[in-house]
Design a protein around this nucleic acid. Structure first.
Lengths: 326, 326
DNA sequence: TTGTATGCGTTATCAG
DNA sequence: CTGATAACGCATACAA
């Protein structure tokens, strides 16, 4: 079933078929011929061969989506936003899930061979080289060298920290991601600033790093809570980490928020189901993904674009934060 | 950067390059020539053009992954398993997120044009037609007509129900998915059977359906709990639905498990962070995905394969289930 | 307004 | 053992 078959059925040449179906025949092909071609294509169930088209045009109309953890709900939402935007723009989406502790190169290698016109890196640092002509947009990662989209992490974390300070907390702990990415480094900076502002030394005993799983986060939170002078509140880089604090507090018989306040980041769905419901910073992950794709599409189309975009976030106060004890 | 460039650099013909790099030169190409070709390819950073190869061979070495909800952690894990298996087999993975209330055809149409050699349908009913020669494997959906992989839902749900009955529960409610898929219909059948076995009529007042989000699940659970004769335990089709029961119970001042026991299905990560931790049925979603891909790969390779596979699950008893009150 | 001819980069057949 | 050469299906410059 190729354009040649359609041409034969419609009694025209192959190039006419191509012209008609690509829409580039506008005004050059007679209405009758056009109708005949369309009908033949329809009847035969013709669909253009993507490989041939890609070979000929040099564009695959598909983009690669690189995420560090498909199972993290935040990425799930971001992926949904990106993939929905991509599909409506006629782009397919290739998924690449690369755990951060594994080399990127291998899986990407395959895609760089042509199946993909560009990459969306979600919280993953793109490799240095750019051998092919693929476009790249980074989301929540280092903005150097590539167009980027990110959340207003400063504003969000400041809001959470400010909320905690208003409740009288000064010894605020920070449960941080072990991934050394800018988005998390920003959080650490704001945390330091907030503590200094509160007249408290941002000592290492008030910080602990963990991966994005509840058990690891619980262990790290435990170290914070077991310290000689434990924090009265813990600001977390992420809701998953905050979940770890719940686990650690529970093990130690500590009540939230009476004994320790907890604030998260992302507003994942499960945050509301926790008890008490988690105070967190809401981010529109789906929009983040959609904007990222739009940026990439513009780059692929060769359009001029702003270097970066910052999306707003919003503090959501729920039950896990309360006035500082004593 | 094409094979022609490599040929020129190595001082051989283009077809020799192809032979060497595809490994089909085994024993026909001299070691010296082979080395020269490989070195030239290496130095030039040559990588075969995927579109050209796909056009020539008719195989894209990529598969489509169709899921109803990328943000659901269960699909996240399944996708991870499938995509990891795919990458190690040299296949790329195209992601298609199709909410169940939306038509499948549009997004699939694009992929059927050739970029994809086969489809993995996760909890999505594949469309009837199979115009192209793509292979299809269905996961947790109707097994008719296609090879399938699924979880031992019967065994898992029976275990949960049996556990509840051992605790003395007879009026067991069922919070079910609104999606009319076999995997959920099976749960409903087992629930009916269990109630009948306990001498209780499986009336409609003991059943409620919801979508996979906490709010909707909470509303449905509320209807169960507000009934004249509410259930003393609720078996849920899924952990998200179980989360809804937590929300509904909390709103009504009911304690889990003292006033109502709750059992989930899937063992999503957040199940342990709930309070009390959720009793649920653990499913190895990652393996499900990996097995599904392996099945699809076999089908693409034209191998004979067993019609279906059932993967085991395991009951995990935690704090959300207790002895029946009264 | 339509048709002819060409090439995109590969693989694979067939001579040499 | 290696090199011409012919497709694969499409888009497009150019000719008619």
């Amino acid at each position: 079933m190729t354009s040649v078959d359609v041409a034969r059925a419609a009694g025209v040449s192959q190039s006419t078929v191509s012209l008609v179906l690509s829409g580039k025949g506008r005004g050059r092909i007679s209405a009758r011929t056009e109708a005949a071609v369309r009908r033949a294509a329809e009847e035969l169930g013709y669909r253009p061969n993507a490989a041939a088209r890609a070979l000929r045009t040099g564009a695959a109309r598909s983009v690669g989506l690189v995420v560090p953890d498909v199972t993290h709900p935040f990425f799930g939402e971001t992926m949904r936003g990106a993939q929905e935007a991509a599909w409506t723009a006629g782009y397919a989406v290739a998924l690449v899930d690369v755990p951060l502790d594994r080399p990127l190169e291998a899986p990407l290698e395959a895609l760089r061979a042509g199946p993909v016109d560009g990459f969306l890196y979600f919280s993953v640092e793109p490799p240095e080289w750019r051998p092919g002509g693929e476009q790249v947009v980074v989301i929540e990662a280092s903005p150097d060298a590539f167009p980027w989209v990110r959340l207003d992490v400063e504003g969000g974390f400041d809001a959470a920290l400010g909320h905690l300070r208003e409740l009288g907390h000064t010894r605020i702990g920070h449960l941080t991601s072990r991934v050394p990415y800018p988005t998390f480094q920003i959080r650490t900076e704001r945390w330091r600033a907030a503590l200094v502002g509160a007249g408290v030394e941002p000592v290492d005993a008030l910080r602990a790093g963990a991966g994005f799983d509840f058990d690891d986060a619980a262990r790290a939170a435990g170290r914070l809570l077991d310290a000689a002078e434990p924090p009265t509140a813990i600001a977390c880089d992420d809701d998953i980490l905050a979940g770890g604090v719940y686990l650690a507090a529970r093990e130690r018989g500590l009540r939230i928020p009476e004994d320790v306040s907890v604030a998260g980041f992302d507003d994942l769905d499960f945050a509301r189901v926790l008890w008490p419901p988690l105070t967190t910073v809401r981010a529109d992950a789906e929009r983040l993904g959609a904007v990222a794709f739009a940026t990439l599409a513009a780059a692929i189309a060769g359009e001029e674009l702003e270097a970066g975009q910052v999306l707003p976030v919003e503090l959501v106060v729920r039950g896990s934060t309360g006035v500082a004890a004593g």
